[in-house]
Amino acid sequence: IQLFSRPDFLGDHFSFEDDQAALPASFRPQSCRVHGGSWILFDETNFEGDQHILSEGEFPTLTAMGCLASTVLGSLQK
């Protein structure tokens, strides 16, 4: 999965292949690309809070990911 700090796959980005119990504190994903398989994104660290399940594809905004525009993602799980 690739996470981007701005909508439309712009800004800083991080790529992950494994579960992340905590995303970098200063990084707030605003768009993402899922390459193969599914990922669960969580509103809180340690895989807690609301879950957003994404299958392979491109998600140019938080709302395209099924999140509110104000959502701050905290962790993710493959």
Rank of each mutant, 00 (worst) to 15 (best):
F4T: 01
F16Q: 04
G36C: 10
G37C: 09
L10E: 13
L73R: 07
Q30V: 04
F16N: 06
A25V: 12
F14C: 11
I53T: 13
T45Q: 14
H13A: 12
L73E: 03
S15Q: 13
A64I: 03
T71S: 10
I40G: 03
E44N: 13
F9H: 05
S55L: 09
E44P: 07
G57W: 00
L3R: 04
D43Y: 06
L73S: 07
G49M: 02
P29V: 14
D50K: 14
R33I: 13
P7C: 07
E17W: 12
D12A: 11
L54S: 03
G74D: 05
R6Y: 08
S55M: 12
L68W: 09
D50R: 14
L62E: 02
W39P: 02
L23E: 00
S5L: 00
L68Y: 12
G57E: 01
G57D: 06
C32M: 03
Q30F: 00
C32I: 10
A21S: 12
Q20E: 10
L54R: 05
R28F: 11
D8C: 09
F42Q: 00
E48R: 14
Q51T: 11
G66F: 05
S15I: 15
L62M: 06
T63Q: 14
E48P: 01
G37W: 00
D50I: 09
F16P: 05
F47R: 03
N46K: 08
G57M: 01
I40C: 08
R33M: 10
C32A: 14
S70C: 07
L3N: 00
E58A: 10
Q30Y: 02
P24C: 02
E56F: 07
F27Q: 02
D43T: 15
G66D: 06
S5W: 01
G11T: 04
N46D: 11
E58H: 07
P60Y: 00
V34E: 01
I53P: 12
K78I: 11
L76W: 05
S26N: 15
D43M: 07
S15R: 11
E44L: 11
G66T: 04
D43H: 12
G74T: 07
D8I: 04
T71P: 09
G66R: 06
C67I: 08
E48Y: 08
P24L: 01
N46V: 00
T45K: 14
G11H: 04
F4P: 01
C67V: 10
A64R: 08
G11E: 00
F16C: 07
T61F: 03
V34K: 02
L23S: 04
C32H: 09
S5I: 01
Q51Y: 12
E48A: 12
R28T: 14
F9M: 02
L68H: 15
A22G: 07
D8S: 09
H35Q: 11
S26Y: 13
L54W: 03
L73V: 15
D12K: 09
S38I: 10
H52G: 06
C32N: 02
L41Q: 00
D43C: 09
D12M: 10
L41A: 07
T71K: 10
L23V: 03
G36K: 12
F27R: 01
P7V: 06
E56W: 05
L76S: 05
L41D: 00
Q2F: 06
L54K: 00
